[in-house]
Structure formats: C-alpha cells, structure tokens
Design a binder for these strands. Structure first.
Lengths: 187, 187
DNA sequence: CTTTAATGTTGACATTGGACACATTGATGT
DNA sequence: ACATCAATGTGTCCAATGTCAACATTAAAG
C-alpha cells in the first residue's frame, strides 16, 4: 500500500496500475490479488488511510488551542489544506466519485465518519463555550467542512491564480477565507 | 461529444472508453481521433462545456433577482448544487485533478475563468449596493465559491447522510449552509 | 510427517489507448 | 470536366492493463 500510495501521488490516479505497484515492490503482477480483491479495493484502502490521517490532524489541531474553538477551527482548516496540498491524488480518491460510498467498503465509510466527528467536536466545544451560536451542530459542522473542503479542492485543482502557489500565500489566503466564514458561525 | 457525455454520466469517468463512444455513434474505433488528439482532449472539451453551462446558470441566477445580491448569491448556489447533482461525473472532470490546469487546454481555462467572473460580478454588485462589505472582491468571491463548491462536492460524493437525498431536503440544507456563509460577507 | 492456509508465479485472455497506412469524399481552383 | 487536397473514416497492429485459473512454495498447526 505504501508503494501504491507513492506511485499514486507521483502520477495521476488513472495512471496507477496494479502491475506498476507489483513491479515496484518486486513481485509478480498478480501477487497483489492475494491481498486485495480488486484494484478498487486497494484504492479504498488508501482512501481510508487518508481519512484516518485527516481525523488525526484535526484532533491534533484541536488539542493545540484548548479552550479557543475559533482558533481550533482555523488550525484544523490549515491542517486540512496542508494535507490536501501534500496528497492531492489521495484526496481525489477520498472525495472524488471514484469509489462507491455505500457499504461496499465499511472501513472507508467509518474512517470518513470519524474525521467528520473530530470536526463536529470542535463545533460543539465552541457552542459550549458560548463562542459559536447554539444552532444545529451537525449543520454548522457541515458548513465549516464545506468551506474548508471547497477551498482546498479549488487550490489542489489549481483553479486559483498561479500567483498564489507559495505556501505562505496559501496560508494567508486560507486564514482570510476562513475568518470570513467563521463570522457566520460565531454567537 | 454528446455521446461521450452521456456515457460518462452513465458509468464512471474511468470506465469511459473512446471505443464505447465510437460504437455508440456508429463509427470505427479510431474515427474519434480525427476530432480529438487524445482521450484527454475529448474529456477537456466536455469539461469546458460544463464550465460554460455553469457560467450561464450563475448569470441567469443573477438576472432573476435584480438589485438583491444576497438573493442572487443564494440562487447561484442552488444552481451550482443542481448542476453538480445532475452531472457528477462531469463535475469530477472539471474539478478533479484529471486534466492539467496549465495552458494545455486554453478553452478549458478560459471557460473556468468566465464562470468565476460571473460569480465575482454578483459580489461586486453587492458591494456597490452596500449589501456586502467593501473588502477584496476577489477574495470574497473565492470564499463564496469555496463554500458552494465544497458543499456540492460533499453531496455529490455522498459524504452527507443518505437521509438527505430528496431534492427538497438538499434545497433546504443548501439554503441553511449558504445563509450562514452569507453572514460573513454582509456589510 | 501430513495438512492447510497464505502467498507467490506463470500463462492466458479481453479491453483499451494509440500509431500507422490506406480509402472515401466533397469542395475548390484551373 | 478534371486534378488536387483537406477532412473524415476504416482496418490492422502493438503495448499496457485488469483479471482469472492452475500450479508452486512455504511456514505454521496438529
């Protein structure tokens, strides 16, 4: 899976072939089928790891700023952005319509839910602190998720002017956009 | 291209083959190469059409509510969401990292810019009306774009609970999320 | 020492993207 | 009327790929 992930990021998602992975690992071209039913199954495994890393990053961001939900959310946004920029192809796998989102891969769905929960915890903590308005927490978490997600996807897809390709610039822009979005969440 | 687009939405983006398209149109499997250099080139053409339709939808939404920028933005969001839900695979093509975003396909980039401009016009009109705060319009447009984009991508990827699959539910949820995001843009 | 599950190997097959040489055809200039 | 030529389509061929089936190895378990 490590080899597959590396090859995935080196080339595009469509260009990843099981045979390449097998060759990189140094086994025959059908050996991967002993570990993964499908090509899709391997991809689902990689995507699940991506969600796990995302959840870990968000939780870590929350721990960094105890008692300050707005700061936690901002920090989580920066982590989200960083992860997307560093693993664009993997993110494509996680959020693109490449994999079925039904219960074909229970691990995948579960990992995704855990990541969303870690974000929801930040929102709820902010509500308890009185920093965020006391509306439907799920809905507010979805709003925050959508904002960060959309921004990072636009960046990863290079749909923002190429001027803003320096990490520092991205950081500033992320802060600006998220600050605006935070306005709507505050109490 | 129409046949290709239909096949694209019927199956996944990876499953689309030029040969299928050729068969559907009733020509030999190499005939498409007279019109498109590449498979990628055909996909780029489809993606460009997608951006054109998006731009048209946003402009139409703006015309629907003259003088009310907030309402225009909300309407544009609903159009965006509708378009994404109706053409998920095409959107995948437009925003996924499938196609190179440099100047390999000038039409593609241009169509994308036009769509973004149509959104930016709404923001600027809102600023002129005094409805939106008078900060960097480009940045505010990016914020709005990110929010709508993220939300619709999450929906299209079925990352939101399956309970919310009815069109009416989606409409309500979109309104709720966008209303929250609008807060940060208002004067 | 046998059994068995895990893992790997070889070989085959269909599908696909793409290159190439060749045929058809319709408009154009003489 | 006739030659020219660009646009379009056709058939053939090849390499890469996903997947399957039959067979080999090997290490743990009884």
């Amino acid at each position: 899976m490590a080899a597959a992930r590396q090859l995935l990021e080196e080339n595009s998602i469509a260009a990843l072939s099981l045979r390449q992975v097998a060759k990189k690992v140094g086994v025959s071209h059908t050996a991967p089928y002993r570990h993964f039913k499908d090509k899709e199954s391997l991809l689902a495994g990689i995507a699940a790891i991506g969600f796990d890393e995302l959840a870990a990053e968000i939780s870590k961001a929350a721990d960094l700023h105890p008692g300050n939900a707005a700061q936690q959310l901002l920090e989580a946004g920066h982590c989200y952005m960083k992860l997307v920029m560093n693993n664009p192809q993997c993110v494509q796998l996680m959020f693109g319509n490449v994999l079925p989102c039904d219960d074909t891969y229970p691990n995948l769905r579960e990992s995704g839910d855990i990541a969303f929960d870690s974000l929801k915890r930040i929102i709820e903590e902010g509500q308890n602190q009185g920093a965020f308005k006391a509306e439907d927490g799920e809905l507010m978490a979805l709003t925050a998720w959508a904002g960060i997600h959309g921004l990072s996807m636009l960046f990863a897809g290079e749909h923002v002017e190429a001027v803003v390709s320096l990490p520092a610039e991205i950081h500033n822009l992320t802060t600006a956009v998220m600050t605006t979005m935070l306005e709507g969440l505050k109490a």
